[in-house]
């Protein structure tokens, strides 16, 4: 499955667009209501990070499949300032959006796999996967 579709994030409203597309794809894959809601929340966090800290970027979705299971991969890419200290950002209680967002630790909890690559001055790529169980 190499099908991939993306939503560009430029304004706050695009967060909703990303959520919508992510939810539609999750539904198609067969995720239940709770997982759909969790995936949508994760998308919100990722898209909001792009909107707040990088200005622009995109959130892409990919249906993935291995021998036993199906899942959804979400990749959030921006060319913003990058994260200076990823370990610190991944710490609970260190919320960059004023304590209101679940932050990246929240995204990690909502999904099954989580990876982030960030280079200062070049941008950030967050890669997450949720498997259908």
């Amino acid at each position: 499955m190499d099908f991939q579709s993306c939503v560009n994030i430029k304004k706050e409203w695009d967060i909703v667009g990303a959520r919508q597309l992510g939810r539609d794809i999750s539904k198609k894959i067969g995720f239940g209501t709770v997982d759909q809601a969790r995936i949508a929340t994760a998308i919100s966090e990722l898209a909001r990070n792009i909107y707040l800290y990088a200005g622009t970027g995109k959130v892409c979705f990919e249906t993935i499949e291995n021998l036993n299971e199906k899942g959804l991969r979400i990749i959030a890419i921006d060319e913003g300032p990058g994260i200076r200290d990823v370990t610190q950002v991944m710490e609970d209680g260190f919320s960059t959006s004023g304590g209101l967002g679940a932050g990246l630790p929240g995204v990690k909890r909502l999904m099954d796999e989580f990876d982030v690559i960030s280079r200062q001055g070049e941008g950030t790529e967050v890669n997450v996967v949720k498997w259908l169980r």
Partner: peptide, 16 residues
């Protein structure tokens, strides 16, 4: 379903 959606973030806060 709407109620469920509003509770997701509470779930995260609880885990944190």
């Amino acid at each position: 379903n709407f109620l469920l959606e509003t509770m997701i973030s509470y779930g995260l806060a609880y885990q944190e």
